[in-house]
Each structure stands twice: as structure tokens, then as C-alpha cells.
Design a protein around this nucleic acid. Structure first.
Lengths: 181, 181
DNA sequence: TGGTTCATGTAATGCGTTACATGATTAC
DNA sequence: GTAATCATGTAACGCATTACATGAACCA
């Protein structure tokens, strides 16, 4: 139940239309909470029905017309409540680790190529994060907001770095297991 | 679409009943692919209907009776196919990072306590992993299966280590942001 | 005027979660 | 014999994903 709060955060940072939000969920926010435009429109409908956001009066009408939303006080209060409330971490799901464990039983055929591909994807993501860090967090900016946002970005950078390292070790170390039914 | 493959892997490692599987998904496999008993029973039904597994003839009857399953050749083939096929990594979802970003807007009240709690949870998980490593992977065992399984466990250990470090830095560095509606 | 892009949706399906149900076994 | 636990399920709901639909604006 975090998508509405992700949207509230995004709208507080900057009032936006559904498509604007979709684009921001493809970078930025989406780096740690992804969402498609269908999810976003559905959730915008709910948030509006609950009185947490409203369409900006400027442009409201039908299909094909841009419609921007802003957060109402009730929405800000709900986001503050959610942010302060304790939450248990969700259990992980990592298909790649699962595949390694499966490969120990049914064989490692085909794995190496995909490990290399994943490493390349992580390298690209890391490069993107480092670009953002250089652009948005030059040394010396130490406002509270900037420090919090930088902390989040650092987590992303260090996680990508971890995966690249781990995949490199895995590729060096990958034994060959034959499939022997 | 990985739960059936997680179950096939578990059953190939050792034929089991639904409850046995549920217990193994609370440790071991569940460390990187969690599942509840309801999911497991539903999926066992599907896998049996598809001819990927079968109930061991020994004990099959109704409610309250233990029923163990084993993997059929078609199930092993499907698992091998899935393991070798390329898969894109799924986008991440991390509520804690989202909360930090929200806190930059609505204030950091209440966050510190939960960051400490999360760090403690990660410390416990790390201790559990290290216990398993000591017990199941003593130095010197270098069978192909053991090396693959050890690789997976190392990923878990290093990820927990990362989160503990990151949370420690975050706690040292956490600025105070007031909620100013 | 016909196609592409922008923008907002609807519909169908499937996995995950929570709550509940029911038969067997064991302990007292 | 009855209460707790073991073991296997059913049912309902919600979010996420995929495919499709519709209107407006722009461009050739």
C-alpha cells in the first residue's frame, strides 16, 4: 500500500498530470517505486475521491485534455502519518538468485550469457545514477532536503555497485553443472 | 511467474508435502522467494494438473493426510527451460527509500526509530545467514552444487551487510526536516 | 485526410494476501 | 473425550500487468 504515498510525494514535489507522473515514475521516483500509467490513473481517481488531491481548476475536462493535480491538506496529513508509522520490510524476491539455485539442480546451461547481460544492465543503471549525482548533488549543497535525497540516491548507487561486483565474482566462479535427469 | 519454478526446485532438492514446502519457504528458499501456504497449495494443484509433478503413491488421500509430491520429467524439463531463458530484472520496490523521499517533503518525525528497528532486523538476518554459512559451507567443500548455493548465500550476506552500513550512515547523517504545511 | 504522438482511460487476468474452514493426530 | 496442533485446503479481495480503446493536437 505505498503507491498512493509515492504519488502524494511526487505531487507535493511538483503538481503534475497523469502523464507527467508516468514520466517521473520512469526515472526518479520509479528507481525505487515503479508504476505504470494504468496504475497511476487508477490511483489518482481514488486519491481524488478520498479528498487527498484535487484537479487544478485551470484545465479539467475530458479525454485527451491534460489534467493536473495538487495535494490537499488531508493528503499531506496522510503522507506524514504514513511516513512516520513503523513498517516491516517486505520479503525479497529475486528471480536471478532463484535461477542459480535451480541451476544447481538442473544444470547451468544458458546462465552465463544472462549473467553477463544483467551485469551490463546494472552498469548502465549505475552510470545513470552517477550522472544524476554529478548533476543534482554537487559538493557543498547541504540543505536538509538535498541530504535526504542524496542518501536515497547513494543507496541506489551502492546497490548497483554491489550487483556488478557480485555478478563479476559469480561469472569468475561459475561451475559447470550438467543436467542429468 | 517464478513461484512454480521455486517449487519445482524445492521438490527436486527433496520431495515434500505442502507443509514441508511451507516450512522450507520460511527459511532457505524463502530468503529470496517468499510464499505462503495458500500460494503453495494452489500452485501444487496447478503443477499436478499440468503433469509437472505428481503425488507420491505412498500416501495420497484427503484432508488432514500428508501428501508428498515429486517432480516428473516434464517438470524438470520446464525448470531447465526457465533457468536457461533470459529474463529482465524486475523494477525494485523499496518502501523505506520512498519514506525517506517523502520525509524530505513532509518532515522526518518518527523516522529515526524505524530506521534503528530496520537495522536491528537486518542484523538478525545477517546473523542467521552467517550461522548457515558456518554450518553448511565449511571451507574446503567445492562441489559444483555447493559453490552455486554458496554464491546465493553470499549475495544474501552482502546485501544485509550493505543495508546495515547504509542505515548506520543514514542515522548519523539524518537531518531534521520540519513539517511545514 | 491520414498518420503519429499526446493524453486519459477501460477491461481482463493473475499473483499475493488475509480470513476462514475442515479433517486427522497427539497430549492431557 | 476434548483441546491443541498438524495438515490441507476454499473464498474474497486487492494490487500489478497486459492488452486494448478513445479523444485531441500536430504534421505531412
Amino acid at each position: 500500500m505505498s503507491l498512493p504515498h509515492a504519488i502524494l510525494t511526487a505531487l507535493l514535489e511538483k503538481p503534475s498530470s497523469g502523464l507527467d507522473l508516468t514520466r517521473r515514475f520512469d526515472r526518479s521516483i520509479g528507481y525505487f517505486w515503479s508504476a505504470t500509467h494504468q496504475q497511476i490513473y487508477r490511483e489518482l481517481g481514488r486519491l481524488e475521491a478520498e479528498g487527498h488531491i484535487r484537479a487544478l481548476p485551470a484545465a479539467q475536462p475530458a479525454r485527451g485534455q491534460k489534467k493536473a493535480y495538487e495535494v490537499l491538506p488531508a493528503g499531506r496529513a496522510e503522507l506524514a502519518r504514513w511516513t512516520a508509522a513503523p513498517q516491516d520490510p517486505k520479503p525479497h524476491r529475486d528471480a536471478l538468485l532463484l535461477r542459480l539455485r535451480a541451476a544447481a539442480v538442473v544444470g547451468t546451461a544458458g546462465l552465463e550469457a544472462d549473467l553477463r547481460r544483467h551485469r551490463e544492465l546494472h552498469r548502465r543503471q549505475l552510470a545513470e545514477y552517477e550522472e544524476i549525482e554529478k548533476r543534482d548533488f554537487p559538493p557543498g549543497d547541504d540543505s536538509a532536503q538535498a541530504r535526504l535525497q542524496h542518501l536515497v540516491l547513494r543507496a541506489g548507487i551502492e546497490l548497483e555497485t554491489f550487483w556488478i561486483q557480485w555478478l563479476t565474482e559469480a561469472l569468475e566462479d561459475l561451475p559447470v553443472v550438467e543436467d542429468t535427469p
